[in-house]
Design a protein around this nucleic acid. Structure first.
Lengths: 166, 166
DNA sequence: CTAAAACCTCAACCAAGCTTTAGGTAAAGA
DNA sequence: TCTTTACCTAAAGCTTGGTTGAGGTTTTAG
């Protein structure tokens, strides 16, 4: 039987973590500078990690796959009490939070898709009247954009305005 | 009545184009260096644009809204005969092409969403067995990723593997 | 004619998310 | 012990899509 204090000792080298987590060593250094993971040092100043760093990296990768930025991931991780490594329940909570953001992105892209569908037949692309150019709107990568559906009247502008541009 | 040769003369200054297209002057310079638009020069070395540059910019902005990179937009524009500025039919063809890519992105993000949904209950996030970590897969921003659905058997791995990681 | 506004080029800078390089130290295997 | 492999830090480089600034010229309005 092992004691909790023994199990918690940082034993993993940066190379071992990199291999197990399938990331580059430089990525681990980078994450550390960004405060996403932490390490201890051995007598020779080499990094040693606790095993739970693997779960943190897993959560980071999961968040990234969902399109969440490292800054946001860090913020979400830091909401855990004492910045503890996420357990199963934490992961459920975080992933539900991120999933909502993912849903927004999907919804935004589907609105763009619909709009383009309407604009194909029209072809006007007028900077002034085409609903493709709602200036209130923002690009898809900014992960936000419930604007088009807020202004449904604009969809009506998408008809037969091609010739008016030239 | 105006002659075609007169109508085609580059008359618009960079400031006029910027204002009409609602982009910064620096953006127009930038697009020119990237080969997305072209200009002529007047006697004093100032840029003069043909009117159709506005339509090109409109297409560029539409492509960007659909998540297409400037490089891809340039490539698509260059498939036009003699790099002519897109007309209504060209726009229909290009937008359908880009829409297909947008559809792929949406589909990818929805697959991620499904996967996360399954993983919330599981919580394992094992680097080796969790379907969140298909190494063949790529991140959403790379606009490609028909991988998860190619390996449906992986979804089965998402059950009760939480404890096996520690 | 003069001053302001617009324009020119070139270079540097920004964010994100890393990777690469350089120069040097530590640990591990034969 | 010796050599290879792994590791260290700090700084620079990369990509995308631009913006900002410096220093100088052209155009336009009064």
């Amino acid at each position: 039987m092992t004691l909790a204090s023994e199990r918690d000792e940082p034993r993993l080298s940066v190379g071992q973590v990199a291999k197990r987590a399938d990331v580059a060593v430089s990525t681990l250094h980078f994450y550390e500078t960004k405060g996403l993971i932490r390490s201890w040092r051995n007598a020779g100043n080499q990094r040693r990690y606790k095993k739970d760093v693997l779960r943190r990296i897993a959560v980071i990768k999961a968040g990234q796959k969902m399109g969440i930025s490292l800054v946001e991931i860090k913020e979400t991780l830091s909401t855990l009490p004492e910045s503890r490594t996420p357990n199963k329940e934490d992961w459920a909570r975080m992933s539900r939070f991120w999933q909502a953001q993912l849903d927004e992105k999907i919804a935004y892209m589907m609105r763009v898709r619909e709009m383009v569908d309407g604009c194909i037949g029209c072809g006007c692309l007028s900077m002034k009247s085409c609903p493709m150019y709602n200036p209130e709107d923002i690009v898809a990568t900014e992960a936000n954009g419930a604007v088009w559906l807020d202004h449904p009247e604009q969809a009506k502008a998408a008809k037969n305005c091609y010739d008016s541009q030239n």
